[in-house]
Design a protein around this nucleic acid. Structure first.
Length: 355
DNA sequence: ATGCACCGTGCGCCAACGTC
DNA sequence: GACGTTGGCGCACGGTGCAT
């Protein structure tokens, strides 16, 4: 196992010069492994194959490894240290983030083996695993329900008189936000979907939205309720001039003519929809911590699913169906999609005894 | 002219979801 | 399961427009 000092120097020189060592060695340090991994990911990021946000997370987990193991520690020497790393991570974060960190850390060491920086794959030990499904389930059960009630949705869409400081104020979403809320509960649109809706995907005459998701190429089709069409028309009539050339196709723009959701190259995401939606919920007195715009999508999925036509729900939501059945299935008839949309609308518009 | 509330923007960090 | 993407939320800063 003795390493020739000559070989070691060659590796050190390579590292110093920012090169990947030409000599395979079992003397790889944690710091070198992490640096090499991050360099590779940085290249992917610069090629546009990786979001800067994910890169930022990789930086974070490699930082945890270096901090826990020590940068000069040899990868080869690691034994039950991963249990320590897990324990330290669990102190910092909840089960979901802990699970993410474990997955990403494993991918760092897997990278080391696959690139030949390491001779052997790493033994992480029996404890270095993601939290059990049951732990995650219990964690999720402790979170607030990601659903809105019909009365809450009607308040957002139709407006509601709220008693403020002595006087009554009528609170209602503005046309843009109203259109987005309706897209959320009518079509299962999320923040990104609303911000990215293009003029070509929207057919107000036919009252349909029809497009291919840019990422997956999955077709997404959705029949629009009359109130959704009305809100979209209103938003279009007040649509500001797009501030940037790349936003000319967007249906919905902020008052300053920019997109509602923007990603910067530093991994930061600006989400005006989430901000405005949160303000509306507070003004209506129905704000619950942890329940935001995305809960509209949950609501559509849940209520739409109760129409017992999951295939139609999936098509409206833009989900892919991984099963083989999808390969053989004929295109979904519009009538099925209309049935789901009507089902959700009836639920929303029908007063129940408790409401 | 000055003060200030409001709102958009920039960002960090936690959490969860989606695809292969 | 591995790998990748998106949502939620809180905080700080700075421009804008309105009241004083």
């Amino acid at each position: 196992m003795e390493r020739g000092s000559e070989e070691y120097k060659k590796v050190a020189d390579d590292l110093h010069a920012g090169r990947t060592p030409r000599v395979k060695t079992d003397g790889l340090t944690i710091a070198h492994l992490c640096n090499s991994f991050l360099t590779a990911k940085l290249r992917k990021k610069e090629a546009g194959e990786l979001t800067s946000r994910l890169f930022w997370e990789y930086q974070e987990v490699t930082g945890l490894s270096v901090g826990t193991f020590g940068g000069t520690r040899l990868v080869e020497d690691l034994a039950d240290d991963f249990a320590d790393l897990r324990a330290r991570t669990a102190e910092k974060w909840g089960p979901v983030r802990l699970g993410n960190a474990i997955t990403r850390t494993k991918s760092v060491f897997k990278y080391g083996y696959e690139t030949g920086l390491m001779e052997r794959s790493t033994r992480f030990g029996p404890e270095f695993k993601k939290p059990d499904k049951s732990v995650l389930r219990r964690h999720r059960a402790g979170r607030p329900s990601q659903m809105f009630e019909p009365g809450e949705l009607r308040a957002m869409i139709d407006g509601k008189a709220v008693v403020g400081r002595g006087d009554e104020v009528f609170v209602r979403a503005d046309p843009n936000l109203r259109a987005m809320i309706l897209l959320g509960v009518n079509c299962g649109f999320g923040n990104m979907d609303c911000a990215g809706l293009t003029l070509s995907a929207l057919d107000p005459e036919r009252a349909w939205i029809d497009f291919l998701r840019p990422k997956t190429g999955i077709a997404r089709r959705c029949p629009l309720w009359p109130e959704t069409v009305a809100a979209l028309r209103e938003a279009l009539s007040g649509r500001p001039e797009p501030a940037n050339e790349q936003d000319t196709q967007r249906v919905l723009l902020t008052v300053r003519g920019s997109a509602f959701v923007i990603h910067t190259d530093t991994g930061f995401r600006k989400d005006v929809i989430g901000i405005q939606f949160g303000k509306l919920l507070k003004a209506l007195g129905i704000h619950r911590s942890g329940v935001g715009f995305y809960a509209l999508r949950h609501t559509f999925e849940t209520i739409g699913g109760s129409a017992k036509d999951q295939v139609a729900v999936d098509l409206i939501m833009g989900h892919t169906d991984p099963s083989m059945a999808a390969v053989y299935r004929e295109p979904v008839d519009d009538a099925h999609l209309l049935a789901v949309a009507d089902h959700v609308r009836n639920w929303l518009r029908t007063d129940r005894a408790s409401a």
